[in-house]
Amino acid sequence: MHKFISLIALLFIFNISTAQIKAGNPEVDPIQVQKTFETWSAYQSKNIMLSRDFKALDVTSKEISKEFFLDQLANGNFIPIRLKSEGNEYAYKLFKILPKTDTSIKATINQIGFDAFKNFKMEGTAFPQFSFKDLNGNLVTNETMKGKIIVIKCWYIHCTPCIREFPQVNKLVEEYKNRKDILFISLAEDSPEQLKIFLARKPLSYSVIPDMKVYMNESLQLNSFPTHFILNKEGLIAKVLPNFESLEVALAKESKL
């Protein structure tokens, strides 16, 4: 009986150990990926998506809150590396930036960490007071948006990444066209005249609200474009996202709630 219990205990310990090893395995070598700024930039752009839900680990593999993790990226001396995991689950671990690493890597990480931390702190708060007309003269306010999931794209005409997303976000609108409880709205910096000329060449399926530069700078305090918001049916900010890839995943999740 004692031998049987000991065997069970050993198997339990082995399973925990195996899980920890699996969870702790980085998908790339943390030393090699910071050899040059180009290497890090290529990895970061494809693999680091801080707006998504993820499990966060510190340098000792201890699980920490997402808020603390992002704060460490914004103000510390760390790089985030994604850990190998099954399916679409995300797990990131902090690794120390090496002494001889290009200082541009740290500067970039601090910036993306700062932006992600700021966006994260907005989640769960009420979207700022809003009352504007779109290009078709329709009034859009916090009250008219209540009871619906609202997807908001913030952009401007000369923002190349913003425009590059148009085919993808238009496809997203088409995908949810039968969901009457989901609205797609965009806030643009540009004037109505500029937007009408531009959108005649580059159509956007979102409702477009012009002259939003002051609102986006002061009320939303945006410093990065594009930025996407998902508001839940209570008018609270569910997610703040920097690109279409993260938006697509977050909207799929929110639409099922």
Rank of each mutant, 00 (worst) to 15 (best):
S191D: 13
E123S: 04
N138D: 14
T125C: 03
T125P: 04
I182D: 03
F184Q: 03
E189V: 01
E174G: 10
C159E: 05
F130S: 06
R164I: 08
G137N: 11
Y156D: 06
E174K: 14
I150C: 04
N136E: 15
G124M: 09
V173Y: 01
P192V: 03
M145I: 10
L183M: 12
Q194H: 11
D181Y: 08
D134L: 07
T160I: 14
L187Y: 08
G137E: 11
F130A: 08
P128M: 11
M122S: 13
F132V: 13
Q194S: 15
G137L: 10
Q129D: 15
F127E: 09
T141H: 07
A188T: 04
I185W: 02
A126W: 02
Q168I: 00
F166L: 10
I150D: 02
K121Q: 15
N142L: 04
M145G: 01
P167E: 03
L135W: 10
I182G: 03
K177P: 01
Y176A: 07
M122I: 00
K153G: 02
E123P: 03
I157Y: 08
P167Y: 04
Q129V: 13
I152S: 03
D190G: 04
S191F: 06
P167K: 07
S186I: 11
F127R: 07
I182T: 07
G137H: 10
I157P: 04
V151I: 09
N178Y: 10
K146M: 13
I163L: 04
F166N: 08
I185F: 03
L135Y: 08
N136A: 15
F166P: 00
L187T: 08
R164Y: 10
F127C: 04
D181W: 05
P167Q: 05
P128Q: 12
M122P: 00
K121V: 13
K153S: 12
L135F: 10
L139T: 13
F132Q: 14
A188M: 10
E143C: 00
K133S: 14
T125H: 13
Q194C: 00
G147D: 06
S191E: 13
Y176R: 08
M145T: 11
M145S: 09
S131F: 03
